[in-house]
Design a protein around this nucleic acid. Structure first.
Lengths: 162, 162
DNA sequence: GACAAATTACTCGGATACACTTTGTCCGAGTTTAAAAGG
DNA sequence: CCTTTTAAACTCGGACAAAGTGTATCCGAGTAATTTGTC
């Protein structure tokens, strides 16, 4: 079980969009060029973000994407779920019902004990992702990256932002 | 991203094997019949458990599987990793290196900030799974299930255990 | 110079193709127990 | 009754097939800004 690489791309795109001045838009083409990934396929991920209300888009030239909310109000979980979907990683297919010793009309009052554990783990995963916002990420990146690269990247982006 | 259904099957098989008296073995055929899943394919999952040292197997008639350790020393994580593999759900492909503003010889001293968050979430997931043992599961099941079904199931298993 | 029309640049969505993984089946080789055969 | 041989039941592993999902690519429709053309 692997997350799609679109999740990674979407997160990196959000990190870039966090650095964009308010009201400016950055096109899918520029985002794909900046990250070195195919534009058309990246578009699918961005459409996911758009549908989830995480980014806002405008059409036409100088159109593109910007965050629809302040970076502090968008979490990793929001982005991951927008691309990957909201359903649990563990799918219970109720095979306990196949037990030949169960009466046919027997009805369980609780979900399967195994599924409960797996879902709890899933919940822990989501909670960790929900605890980190794009603003947190931006702060981390500013500590990690040399100022020179940050400056040049910002310049590169502003050159292309509509 | 979904876990394989083999994970679910393997966990259910382990739950059954936890109820087996010490020294008895249960065949893949019986396990597949009990859970209503294809025998050959279930065999693949059991082979994973065997390779990971979670179950012990004997050949020949009256052969089959039993737990290789006390149920209290086998965790959900052990079983899940035996079937699903040990690598993280998030794969960092280092697309930050594609940033056109980075000098070609620049070397990051830390892993990507985005990957760090994703890996932390993965760790939380694993920690939750590592906190529950098969003994815990067995106890939960005994509280959940009616005594009648438990008794009949145990009888069914002992009939077939070698 | 003001207004309308055409062009351009972009997003969005659907259709399509390819590769990889999951899911499942089949069969042969090797191993151990149980049953049958022979003395 | 005891020993040897045969048969049966099982695991293990590899090869193979089908279905589903992930990873793209391509193209047409719609929209907004810009440019061009007209008065």
């Amino acid at each position: 079980m692997n997350l799609k690489n679109q999740v990674e791309w979407a997160l990196h795109c959000c990190a870039v969009l966090s650095n964009l001045p308010e009201g400016r838009y950055l096109s899918a083409r520029s985002l794909s060029e900046f990250h070195g990934v195919p534009k058309e396929y990246l578009g699918k991920a961005l459409q996911g973000l758009s549908k989830a209300g995480i980014v806002h888009t405008t059409l036409g030239p100088s159109g593109g994407y910007r965050l629809a909310l302040p970076a502090g109000e968008i979490t990793f979980l929001n982005v991951v779920e927008a691309v990957e979907g909201r359903k649990s990683t563990f799918q219970c297919s109720e095979i306990r019902a196949n037990n030949p010793c169960r009466p046919g009309d027997f009805c369980d009052d609780k979900p399967c004990a195994i599924a409960r554990v797996m879902w709890k783990a899933d919940e822990a995963w989501r909670q960790t992702l929900a605890a980190v916002s794009l603003a947190d990420l931006q702060q981390t990146l500013q500590q990690d990256l040399p100022a020179e690269i940050l400056r040049r990247s910002t310049e590169w982006l502003l050159d292309r932002a509509g």
